[in-house]
Write a protein that binds this DNA or RNA. Sequence first.
DNA 1: AAGCTATACAACCGCCAATCT
DNA 2: CAGATTGGCGGTTGTATAGCT
Length: 350
Amino acid sequence: MGHHCCSKQKVKRGLWSPEEDEKLIRHITSHGHGCWSSVPKLAGLQRCGKSCRLRWINYLRPDLRRGSFTEQEERTIIDVHRILGNRWAQIAKHLPGRTDNEVKNFWNSCIKKKLIAQGLDPNTHNLLIKNKTNNSTKAKTHHHQDSTSVFTIDASTNKEVISMDHIKATLASFSPFPHSNNNTTSTTCNYTPIVPNIEYQNPTFIWSDQRNQTVTTTSQFQTSDINHAITQNSMLDFASCSLMESSTNIRQGETEYINENSMWHGTGLEPTTLNPANGTEELMQVQQEEQFPIQTKFCDQEDVYKVNHDQTVENTFDSSNFDFDFVDSTLVPCGLYTSVNSMDQISWDC
DNA sequence: AAGCTATACAACCGCCAATCT
DNA sequence: CAGATTGGCGGTTGTATAGCT
């Protein structure tokens, strides 16, 4: 069954001949492609416009980079895939000269197998054993309106909102404290991670639990990803109610890194309080009633959040730079998804 | 050398959203 | 405003080729 543009005409299918390639190249280099549906006729090809477009984009474009993928490219694909999932077009944007089709093929034929061989789920980048227990149904969740998503759309405000319940439920599962609905505290918490002595190995980096050890990925991110990375840190730190300003290893104008350490601030949390007298951290008494911080600041460069529990709070992100899919796809693999029951929400314009 | 299998990758299919008429 | 068209995307299939028996 053909596409709309070629359903009425007799079109050739299958591999392109060198003659066809030449016709297409000659036409596009001299006239541009314009409307793709008119290209076959103008170029003298018995192909549909869609086929011409695909051939040009995936094979004939002069700025394409042919040949095998380098190790650096492979690392980049894995790193970005971990964040974005199967969004091949987005991933390909991080690899100049590579097409989404090429990246997709490389992933399916090569990287996927490597990850599986290393005991990692290629969808979630988690250990396969762990994933089995969690069931893989959420592995491919990258659409923020998915039923498993932490995000919902507030019909009255048309705002995309994240349920505080999601975060609380997640924290409750991690936190050593019993959950409380008492919201009256003004204590500012700073959770310090205490995690078991386990290393999660991944082809491109090692997530280490050892405190004070900086482990970064080595893939290069484009400027647009700075916001992503900041968001990632913000959301994860938010989830753990921490003030981990230092968790972001991102510098504009240089090679940017995502500090995967911040991921760990959502697990195995040991709460500390900030002593206002001397500014030092003090370990909270475990038997003390657990409180969610009524005021928690998140300092990511110029983005500062003030979160009041049980209130809707708007952040200061430029919405045009905020990638909800990204956040969702980041939170979901981190286990930040629970049933949808949003009483407490953080929301922002979308 | 022939047949079979695995692999890589080019191309197609179907869907969706944006745009056009 | 509705239907048609188009461009873009991800999933899947088809095919050439290399490697093995």
